[in-house]
Design a protein around this nucleic acid. Sequence first.
DNA 1: CCTACCGATCGGTAGG
DNA 2: CCTACCGATCGGTAGG
Lengths: 209, 209
Amino acid sequence: MPRRRPGRPRLTEPSPEYRQRLEEIIETGAQVFHDRGYDAGSLDDVAAALDLRKASLYHYLRSKAQLLYFIFDRAISLSLQRLDEMADIADPRERLATLIAHQVRMVAEEPSLFSVFFDQRPRLDDAFEAEIRQKERAYVGRIAAIVQSAADAGELPPVDARHAAHAVLGMTSWIYKWFDPVRDDPDRVAETMTSLVLGQRPPPSAPSR
Amino acid sequence: MPRRRPGRPRLTEPSPEYRQRLEEIIETGAQVFHDRGYDAGSLDDVAAALDLRKASLYHYLRSKAQLLYFIFDRAISLSLQRLDEMADIADPRERLATLIAHQVRMVAEEPSLFSVFFDQRPRLDDAFEAEIRQKERAYVGRIAAIVQSAADAGELPPVDARHAAHAVLGMTSWIYKWFDPVRDDPDRVAETMTSLVLGQRPPPSAPSR
DNA sequence: CCTACCGATCGGTAGG
DNA sequence: CCTACCGATCGGTAGG
């Protein structure tokens, strides 16, 4: 009588070395798929960049499709994590300004990761797509809530929160197409976008109470 | 002694039927590359959608790369044409609002064309890329001028015109990733984006003079 | 019995 | 606009 538990058997947790190697593969995969696209970028390219043979990648991956999924999961997890970091900002205006700055900095700092995330989305397998979409919906919903609270506070005109959330996300994410780290400064870009949406910062009032 | 003129020889202009067929191929190519991506979308797919054999496409195209270029040229030409149509709007605020509405409507109306234009840009051959980039620079420059004139008129806070131009283009172009014609209305989206950037429309003043 | 690989080759499909 | 092909390279898997 088989005594194995249901689900995939896993006798031990993956070793730290294994996790580390997988992270390298994901990062290299993002670079290769950024440079050549998902379909034209081969697993041979990924392996060569790591000084490995392609077959060795299959110790860490079930398929090329799964590598793309890992890249997507890293991007959306990073985005959600950044949102968590700013959860304690109470002022709606400052929260929206910080969101814009975080988004711009994040995309500017990880161009390969987010280029693949934004451009290769239609190449993601359906099963993986469903999982990413769920996390992304939560993300857009949290952005919409931040926009809504800024509108409620009178910092924005009354707007459709979902449309405005996509507007803010589009404005900031789009930098992956034109941002040049030599010429452009992320914080200056964020300032421009913040003043475009929120107008000029009002002069600080005398501390109340 | 050869008597041919310099440049590419062309005995006759392409016939209207030829032009028509080429337009169909470009439109179908945009659909195929939208659905499957440029690398995974084959010329057999394009031909089959037109009830042709792949080899027949080579009467209209030199290469698959050239088909992608034709798609890009169509997208940027359409964008520049829309800009020309609004050249006679004198009021800076109205000009910027019209720009936003045009951009949103255009992308919403031609999702395949602009999805390929935005997502498959890195797949464009270097020689073609140079030509498209030149036209795109002119396009961004004209957007920046519209933004600048709105800022000069006091309708926007003082901003870096190039950064702000990319912000407006990103906000509006991004809809190709989320716009759902069943759920979303282009004009309502444009209204949200306009009021986000320009604030509430001031009540119309009594006609001067 | 495990891990982390290697050299070689499979069936299919691509652009031209 | 078609039939009949080519040189090349792909993702994935075999035994060891």
